[in-house]
Design a protein around this nucleic acid. Structure first.
Lengths: 274, 274
DNA sequence: TGATGATGTTGCGTTCGACGCAACAGTCAT
DNA sequence: ATGACTGTTGCGTCGAACGCAACATCATCA
């Protein structure tokens, strides 16, 4: 029973390059960030390929990665000249999670929920067409299946993804959900079915995914709202399907919803004033 | 019993700015990375303060953070104009851990060790005067105390730190260890004592830290070597002192050493050919 | 073994992009 | 209102970053 996904193979929409106001930007910084994203997507890449993807000269690409390498954001594979992401990124990431309100406020709640239920708790946000895991607390029952923090997961096949999608209007759902590839026989692949599922999610206040991303993996998620009442994140509980059977789901859904509401109120949400 | 440290308070040497060959660098990229590191260190910072620390004009600092913000590497606190690190960093970090050889090779070994002992396993590398946690597998016995991935921990007060220091020569030890602040009554604070401890670590092939970083926290660590035989990382097992008592340490030390050697061999190390 | 292709790396001259300036637009305290 | 702060933007200048081309290495292949 290894419900540890080979994330590298999960197709996720590429980062869209937002032109936006080209007025206020710094070209070389923008290119440097693009290099980081290319490396994140492709693993090891050489200067020549980077230059081709950026549409710049080889020497320009080289100087950019050299600048990043000096600061440890990328590393160079010894011998072979290829470049990859470096440890500097992790240093920054450690600081990020300890700074963001969402993670700070949710951690205590997540921990209590994990302890009470014995299952793994995750917190995710919407990020360019995927669910980005921000925090994770492993349950006591089992060994932690995988550290998903920083990983990006398809929206249409996960409980967290459905919750995050359920707050969007139809047009945005189409844009964010994208191609909807199939992972198991239970994966939702049609837009109509997804729309129905999202309506149901909104009605009952939580989402379920049973064997949709991987056989044997079940999850239940509920929305976390910010001070304006918008869905800012999703809090989920997940574990093996045999332990999170249909009989236990209602009870867990209630617990997840309560936990998510608790985080929401810590973020300043004062409930639905209608 | 909360052996979850308030990491923000642990003093760690600031990132030293390496001038190096100023020939091959890109000024604005370098400044942008500096901004990220300032934000990692200080949390929320405004444009004016960033400009002061960088030694540039306000408008320059603004354009740099704006470029980073467009790519989600920094976020702007609504209302208050302060900036902080953003979710883009986490996206990159997720890719980093799944790409680095060390993490890939160590994960299976760490998981097995955590399962067999029931305690938490960590993998750390040396990073600018601190131990940087690269990966963590929570033990089954207890709730995972804290997600330390990406966190930087003092070298002189941890088993991982001692292992990483034990591979350096005297001058480097002084440089990396730095001020050696005291965290508990058991913290090693004198250079002489640290030197003795490092010699012992080299001799027996593992390091111990009992109540040195925090009362009630015990850890045992062993070196992971790369293909050249250099100490590339440190693998540790940690848990509450009452469970990792002196009686159990020898057994755990042997297990940690075996696990570290296994990772070493996967990285290409072929044992001490003397 | 030398030729040919590929890679990453570096010096140099030019041009375009990033910089500093200063004015603007807000917010909060006095 | 005034002042003292913030973050933001148009503009002209100057230097930093770019493209070019040559170089250094390493594979592969004749």
């Amino acid at each position: 029973m290894h419900y540890c996904l080979a994330m590298s193979n999960v197709s996720v929409p590429p980062a869209l390059s937002i032109p936006g106001d080209a007025t206020t930007t710094v070209q070389s910084v923008d290119r440097a960030v693009t290099i980081l994203e290319i490396l994140a997507r492709s693993g090891e890449v050489g200067v020549t390929d980077l230059a081709r993807e950026l549409g710049v000269h080889k020497s320009t690409a080289f100087r950019l990665v050299a600048a990043l390498e000096r600061r440890r954001l990328v590393e160079q594979h010894v011998g072979r000249g290829k470049y990859r992401l470096g440890t500097g990124i992790l240093r920054l990431a450690g600081a990020t999670t300890s700074r963001l309100d969402l993670v700070q406020e949710s951690r205590a709640v997540s921990r209590a929920l994990a302890q009470r239920t014995g299952e793994t708790v995750n917190v995710a946000v919407l990020s360019d067409g995927a669910a980005l895991y921000m925090d994770q607390v492993a349950g006591s029952s089992a060994l932690q299946p995988h550290n998903w923090v920083g990983q990006r997961i398809p929206l249409h096949a996960t409980s967290n993804g459905k919750v995050l999608l359920s707050a969007l209007d139809a047009a945005d759902v189409v844009r964010e959900a994208g191609a909807m590839p199939s992972f198991t026989a239970n994966t939702i692949t049609s837009l109509a079915a997804l729309t129905r599922e999202l309506a149901q999610t909104r009605d009952r206040g939580y989402a379920i995914a049973i064997d949709e991303l991987e056989i044997g993996l079940t999850a239940v998620a509920a929305p976390v709202r910010n001070i304006h009442g918008e869905v800012a994140a999703s809090l989920s509980i997940s574990g093996p399907t045999f332990r999170l059977g249909a009989r236990r789901v209602p009870e867990l859904a209630e617990a997840v919803r309560a936990a998510a509401d608790e985080v929401s109120s810590r973020l300043g949400w004062r409930g639905p004033h209608e």
